[in-house]
Simulated scan of single mutants.
Amino acid sequence: MNAPAEVTLYWRPGCPFCMRMRATLRLRGLRPREVDIWKDPDAAAFVRSVADGNETVPTVVIDGVAHVNPPPRMVVDALRRG
């Protein structure tokens, strides 16, 4: 059996893609670590560093690998792994 994935979801208020991702996860009872990039300047800088200088969210880090605007299914699968 694999260890559960370490998942961090970077998001911001008002982002429809973030709302979709968060709702998809919550409906399945899945709770990654969530970071609001508007409240955390270091998190915003990280997102820019992996998204070609943009604050593109959701950005999800799964086991240390950043994914910019991944499909919700990828995140659900990572959180259910284990």
Rank of each mutant, 00 (worst) to 15 (best):
P58M: 10
V65M: 01
M19A: 15
E34K: 03
E34N: 03
A43P: 05
M1F: 08
A44P: 04
R12Q: 14
L27G: 15
R80N: 07
A51V: 01
V50H: 04
V50N: 00
T24F: 06
D36E: 09
V35K: 06
R80M: 13
F46G: 01
E6M: 12
T56A: 15
P70Y: 06
A66P: 15
V60I: 14
D77P: 00
R48P: 06
L9K: 03
A51W: 01
G82V: 05
G53T: 03
N2A: 10
W38I: 01
V35R: 04
D77I: 01
D52G: 13
R73F: 09
L9F: 10
R33C: 02
N69H: 05
I37K: 00
M1E: 11
C18W: 02
R26G: 12
D42M: 04
A45G: 10
G29A: 03
C18V: 02
G29V: 01
D40H: 11
F17N: 05
V60K: 00
S49W: 12
R48Q: 14
R20G: 02
T8G: 08
G14W: 11
G64I: 09
A78P: 04
A51L: 02
P70C: 05
V65I: 13
G82S: 13
V47K: 11
R22G: 03
H67F: 14
P71R: 11
A66Q: 05
F46T: 02
V35I: 15
N69P: 00
R20V: 09
G29S: 00
K39T: 11
R73Q: 15
T56N: 12
D40M: 04
V60D: 04
W11V: 01
V7T: 04
P58R: 05
N2S: 14
I62L: 02
P70W: 06
E55V: 13
V75H: 05
P32F: 08
R28M: 09
P58G: 08
V35A: 07
L30T: 09
N54Y: 13
N69A: 11
L27T: 12
M19Q: 15
V7R: 01
S49V: 12
V75R: 02
T8R: 08
P16S: 13
N54D: 13
F46D: 02
P58H: 08
L27P: 00
G82W: 03
V65P: 01
P16C: 00
D36L: 03
V68I: 06
L27W: 10
D42K: 10
A23D: 15
P70F: 05
M1C: 06
E6F: 06
V35W: 04
P4T: 10
P58Y: 10
A3M: 07
A23S: 15
P71N: 06
T59G: 09
M21I: 03
P58A: 08
P70S: 04
V35T: 10
R48L: 09
